[in-house]
Design a protein around this nucleic acid. Structure first.
Length: 341
DNA sequence: CATCCGTGGAT
DNA sequence: TATCCAAGGAT
């Protein structure tokens, strides 16, 4: 029979020996974590893998070592540095949040205050409060949902099971070392209690897990099936004039909001004409997968005869591929190959 | 509560 | 190739 009181001690003992070393992390029992670095890493890590975040985190903290310097950064530079990481609303909220925090003289020191800031929801507010301020808030991300669903053998499928999992997780949260405990739960989920083939044989909670006894650990948490992704098509214009190429900033809201992009239409709910007159030549198609649809984008290229009526011309040698979101990098790579040919 | 919002890696 | 999914939040 599981004893809730021993779970945190078991987990913390394991964490003291096996904590992952990460750029934004303070070692177990170590010095106090910097709220700015905790916040920045947590925003980047939302629905994003540790491997993908590492370089972005190092780059951001090198450019902007504190919230004041980030708050003073130009919007376009932050968007360009975020390019490729996805979920661009995070970048816009990041900057809005940094400016509010800088104006207030620092981060709020409790969960409710944190959650009032843009881009900070139930998970992130609890994570910052626990990790940076050592408050016994319960952090519930996808890892914790999975660990708790297995410990308690919760068979209700997600997302309906979420409230129940949160309540169960709250009962496990210790009053001491809540920040280490939160990170330990996530490390356990990421390295031992993994989605497909959990390594129960080396799990520090093997004697505390109901699903393990029932032999259903790998099946939990159950999830309600997702709808199939529809296919969408569209067109992107690679408009050239001399040694320059046309780019535009996308509208702040919606798909790839606020990012630098080639003019395009037909795939994002906006019906736009070509940005100018040209003898457009089809050079190929790029495929891209978004969260809720598959995209096949026809790429056409041409020399502008008039216009453009929007966007701005950028010299090829000034075009930074890394400042483009992933989809537009594919468009650019195709166009660059065509130009070279 | 459902939908929208990226990207890349693992299986 | 198809599917899942990764430290979620806003609307």
């Amino acid at each position: 029979m599981r004893d809730n009181k021993v779970i945190a001690p078991h987990l913390l003992d394991w964490y003291d020996r096996h904590a992952r070393v990460l750029p934004w992390r303070v070692p177990p029992g170590g010095a106090k974590a910097d709220p700015y670095r905790v916040w920045l890493s947590e925003i980047m890590l939302q629905q994003t893998t540790v491997a993908a975040v590492k370089d972005y985190f190092l780059r951001f903290t090198a450019l902007w070592p504190d919230v004041g310097s980030l708050a003073a950064a130009p919007d376009q530079q932050v968007m360009a540095e975020w390019a490729g990481l996805g979920y661009y609303a995070r970048a816009r909220n990041l900057l809005a949040c940094a400016r509010m925090v800088a104006a207030a003289g620092g981060f709020p020191k409790d969960r409710n205050g944190l959650q009032a800031l843009p881009g900070i929801g139930p998970y992130t507010s609890a994570a910052i409060a626990a990790i940076a301020y050592d408050q016994p808030e319960t952090v519930v991300d996808g890892n914790v949902e999975r660990v708790v669903a297995r410990l308690h053998a919760v068979e209700t499928p997600l997302p309906a099971a979420k409230p129940e999992l949160v309540a169960l997780a709250e009962r496990l949260t210790p009053d001491t070392r809540p920040g280490d405990y939160a990170q330990a739960m996530m490390d356990l989920g990421a390295t031992i209690c993994t989605p497909r083939s959990p390594a129960c044989g080396i799990c520090p909670l093997i004697d505390d897990c109901d699903a393990r006894v029932m032999g259903i650990a790998a099946e939990l948490p159950r999830k309600t099936p997702k709808a199939a992704k529809p296919d969408r098509i569209g067109i992107a214009w690679v408009a050239r004039r001399g040694d320059s190429i046309l780019l535009e900033e996308r509208p702040a809201k919606g798909l790839l909001g606020g990012t630098l992009a080639f003019p395009s239409a037909g795939w994002d709910g906006r019906d736009m004409p070509p940005p100018g007159s040209a003898d457009w030549q089809e050079i190929g198609h790029v495929r891209h997968v978004f969260t809720h649809f598959n995209l096949s984008l026809m790429v056409v290229m041409g020399d502008l005869q008039d216009g453009p009526d929007r966007g701005h011309l950028v010299r090829l040698r000034d075009l930074d591929r890394n400042a483009l979101p992933g989809l537009m990098r594919k468009v650019w790579d195709m166009a660059r190959a065509e130009i070279a040919a």
